[in-house]
């Protein structure tokens, strides 16, 4: 195989490692397939939410519960974290190999933004509960609580993974497993953006419309 054409576009695994590029390709593709499976989960949860919109059982509805301002800020934070993650991947590709690696800085920033998102989500959910919006209250709220916190849980899991990868960088440097792991985490991170946009459109904007 021609080593140049077989190279993974997002990685600098070295030109002599055709097989490593092939494996990275399979790994990222496999993870992408996994995300497609996850997409079905979120799609169904969104569908469930829509079918449950009227199942209020006398409880509060979207207009009583949702506020757009925190959602807007959360959206900004999450989208910015995707940008910083993208910067991390770019600096990974052109990693100078110095001690103070820009990739780590970008990853750190991404982690902060991700955790900030999760924290804001948690605060919102707590406020929702205080307003009588507990998941046990109605079918509508059950659907909401299965969807939005699941997304936040995904972000939290992605953050945990990010910490684990950072620890691997600390231990092994930027070796091939770390690089492919970062690529896969990237797929997840951007995927969660897409899902969040869908949630904002359907759950918050759709619910308030």
């Amino acid at each position: 195989m021609n080593t140049e054409t077989g190279r993974h576009p997002g990685l600098n695994l070295g030109s002599g490692h055709a097989e490593a590029h092939g494996e990275a390709e399979a790994l990222v593709f496999g993870f992408w397939v996994f995300m497609m499976s996850d997409l079905v989960t979120f799609g169904l949860l969104l569908a469930t939410y829509v079918t449950m919109l009227d199942n209020l059982a006398g409880g509060p509805g979207p207009k009583d519960l949702f506020e757009l301002k925190p959602v807007f800020i959360e959206t900004l934070v999450l989208l910015t974290s995707s940008l910083t993650y993208g910067m991390a991947i770019l600096s990974l590709k052109h990693d100078p190999g110095r001690r103070l690696r820009p990739v780590l800085a970008w990853l750190g920033l991404t982690l902060m933004l991700g955790l900030a998102f999760v924290a804001m989500e948690a605060k919102d959910l707590h406020a929702l509960q205080a307003k009588g919006g507990a998941p046990q209250r109605s079918g509508f709220l059950s659907a909401f609580w299965a969807l939005v916190p699941l997304h936040a849980l995904h972000v939290a899991a992605a953050a945990l993974w990010l910490v684990a990868i950072a620890a691997q960088i600390w231990r092994f440097g930027l070796d091939t497993p770390v690089k492919t792991a970062l690529l896969r985490l990237g797929v997840l991170w951007h995927f969660l953006d897409v899902v969040w946009i869908a949630i904002v459109s359907v759950v918050f904007l759709g619910g308030l419309a």
């Binding site: 449950m52 109605s138 079918g139 709220l141 299965a146």
Partner: peptide, 10 residues
């Protein structure tokens, strides 16, 4: 929760 219950909007 009330996804599939008779009650509570399931």
């Amino acid at each position: 929760f009330h996804f599939f219950t008779n009650t509570g909007g399931g």
